[in-house]
Amino acid sequence: MASFQGKKINPKHFHISQLKFYIILLPFAVFMVLPIIYIFTTAFKPADELFKFPPSFFVKNPTWDNYKALFELMAGSSVPASRYLFNSVIVTILTVVISIFLAVSAGYVLSKKNFKGRNVLFEINTLALMFVPIAVSIPRFIIIVNLGLVDRFITNILPIIAMPIGVFLLKQFVDQIPDPLIEAAKMDGAGEWTILFRVIIPMVRPALATVAILSFQSAWGNVEASTLYLNNESLKTFAYYITTFSSGGSSTVTQGITAASALIMFLPNLIIFICMQSKVMDTMAHSGIK
């Protein structure tokens, strides 16, 4: 690679020869963006528009009624909504940080170190990835009971920090880092931790950001722990709290609340995505090796 060509993804000027690309890309892009707009418009639809069939895309008479109903319900609950929110924020931050760290260190050694059982471990991980997640919730419950973790705050975090999908993606990305680069770091006297933090992590940043997004979503939207492993209301998460409102039947009020709470649940995902995406798209190109 002569220079960092991959970094310069955007030419400075529009040229007529690029037009054919836009013609292909634009319609696809529209499909990708439409659902996001739909989430926003639906949350502000009054009851009659929510039930219209076929559903209309844009809202005609936007209203805050759905949110008013939702907040009224929230004000009536025994444990304040802020408590659930606080739980969720702590759970999500801890899960994302820990799961990324575990996944990248495991991905690094599974890819670059030779030790007995390495390939077997990775194969098992890939297989575990394919098992229907819901089917393991009862055995998980038994383990949590046996470990004495019922009604502990940490039960929100523990079951989801070892992310098979994270290890799977990160191992594949670490595979693409050339060995000589790691050898060179070793020659310069870098220890294992230095290699991990100074060489591996900067180079797999797109994968890290992707895993961060996935991990964030699984932690933020996780209701399994709150439904099955926790009885104490003040330990449960916001996602669980929200589902208690929307799962109560299909009356017009519930539909509106569902739409409103869907937007509330979705917004953090969107924000994280926007923060992360520049890291995903950036820095992929340079291998540092000629």
Binding site: F28, A29, M32, V33, P35, I36, I39, T210, I213, L214, Q217, S218, G221, A239, A262, M265, F266, N269, L270, I272, F273, Q277, V280, M281
Partner: peptide, 13 residues
């Protein structure tokens, strides 16, 4: 934009 659906398909909506 093309990476955006990642948050839709694995998200709550």
């Amino acid at each position: 934009v093309f990476f955006l659906p990642v948050i839709i398909t694995s998200g709550p909506v």
